[in-house]
Design a binder for these strands. Structure first.
Length: 98
DNA sequence: CTAATGACTGTCT
DNA sequence: CAGACAGCCATTA
């Protein structure tokens, strides 16, 4: 049952990311960054701001499709990647919201 | 049960 | 700055 708990926790964190900000896979699950990724690729949950989940270095996994959504939400860019200095929402901040 | 894979990450070349 | 490696967890073959 711990697995579902972990997944539910991750989903909740994803939902709590405010518009205009982004978070990383590592923040959603420091122990296994691949988990959030797998969940996002397999889950059928709707309305998830999956585009706000980016890599630790500010690059994103879904290429153009994601880039456009991010830009549309007014997320600051640093060249070709997301400006983490400004738009990054740390794990602690997400936990604090809940 | 073992091996391979994936929306990852930090460290080393 | 870009590419290669090894670690990490759960799913799939």
């Amino acid at each position: 049952m711990a697995d579902e708990e972990r997944q539910a926790q991750i989903l909740q964190l994803i939902r709590s990311v405010p518009e205009g900000f982004v978070t990383t896979y590592g923040d959603l699950c420091p122990e296994a960054p691949r988990l959030p990724g797998r969940i996002l690729s397999t889950t059928k949950e709707k309305g998830l701001p999956w585009h706000r989940i980016v890599r630790a270095d500010g690059s994103f996994a879904q290429g153009d499709r994601q880039r456009r959504l991010l830009r549309k939400e007014g997320i600051p860019f640093a060249g070709k990647r997301v400006d983490m200095e400004v738009a990054h929402m740390p794990r602690e901040a997400l936990l604090a919201q809940v």
